[in-house]
Nucleic acid binder design. Structure first.
Lengths: 183, 183
DNA sequence: CAAGAGTATGTACGTGCGTACATAATCTCA
DNA sequence: TGAGATTATGTACGCACGTACATACTCTTG
């Protein structure tokens, strides 16, 4: 039976499906992701999703990679604002952005990150994501300090996502500096 | 139609369904949880699960509560081994246990914790889980130090779950102490 | 002993899923 | 211009889901 003509070939369709995936992850979370839901969001038939991506898992891996790339680009810009004496303030500002305006993508990053606890391919990406901040910090402070701050910032960011209202940059900076009392 | 007689009433059935849920969470993760999967694991018909728990979400909330109770009991014991001068070593030992012998339950705890980013009831439990360690630490060190160490330990624990092999207690203790260079 | 509460059980409904694949259209290149 | 590669599309399969609920059994209490 003749069907409606196909739409013209769309060179950006794969990229748009991926962008739809990231959008849906931000709005509704990992549990809302299916081939049909992404297809609806991208405005394409479900067959397009399975044509361009081998599986839903392959799609999520690709989405995780693209989020890491976004993060890396934004951390590269951020890294240029950092000096060793201002590192706590700059890091506090970064964390503040990630828990406020960038909250949705940060939440998704953690959801995908945790897939790495049970899936080797996601684990590799999770380690990559962790290293992105570490490398920026290591440009400005000794390696031990960079590890310390990256670990502390991650814990602080995760805890801060649970707080209402979100802590401000000053509070975050204080949390990043070593406490005044001898430990 | 006459059916096989019911099994005798089982006063522990609800608790056993809950234990089966926690077991399944540890072995296969959050994505493997369904009423049918839990019923199979518990050795009961699926109607038992929906009789005792209003929904799968209610079941997961109850599982999260029971994991927090287990954690609280184990931290209460642990808290009695801590003194202020040994806090980094004891905390390192605690983290080491949680990423090695206690790895499965720690991974589940994070999976359930992240549900709190999108669900208010889980969020409340997530805050409770965070406070459990903080309160133990605050018995031994000033509040600012307790916050700092709880945040750092959480970030360290999460990062360490991704490392193979897992870092040892000495490395963890070093990561928990402030770095030697002035920051 | 019987009524009633609590528990156990099996079935069913509507829904959505992942993925495969046959078919057809679009586009490129020789 | 036509062959072939690539892309688009709709349909279908088998599976599993969450939850409801009718029915029946077990146990407790008066």
């Amino acid at each position: 039976m003749a069907r409606t003509k196909n739409t013209p070939n769309d060179p950006d369709r794969r990229a748009r499906i991926l962008a739809a995936t990231v959008g849906l992850l931000q709005d509704e979370g990992l549990s809302a992701i299916s081939a049909r839901a992404v297809a609806t969001r991208a405005g394409v038939p479900v067959g397009s999703v399975s044509y361009h991506f081998d599986s839903v898992r392959a799609l999520l891996l690709e989405a995780a990679r693209s989020i890491i790339e976004l993060r890396e680009a934004s951390l590269t810009s951020w890294g240029q604002t950092v000096t060793a004496p201002t590192i706590h303030e700059r890091l506090a500002e970064l964390v503040h952005t990630q828990i406020t305006t960038g909250r949705a993508i940060t939440v998704v990053a953690y959801e995908l990150y945790l897939l790495g606890l049970r899936d080797g391919d996601f684990r590799a990406l999770g380690n990559e994501a962790t290293n992105v901040l570490y490398r920026q910090l290591a440009c400005h402070v000794p390696e031990a300090d960079a590890h310390h701050l990256a670990t502390l910032a991650d814990g602080l960011q995760l805890h801060s996502l649970f707080r209402t209202p979100a802590p401000g940059p000053e509070e975050l900076a204080a949390a990043l500096r070593p406490p005044a009392s001898p430990g």
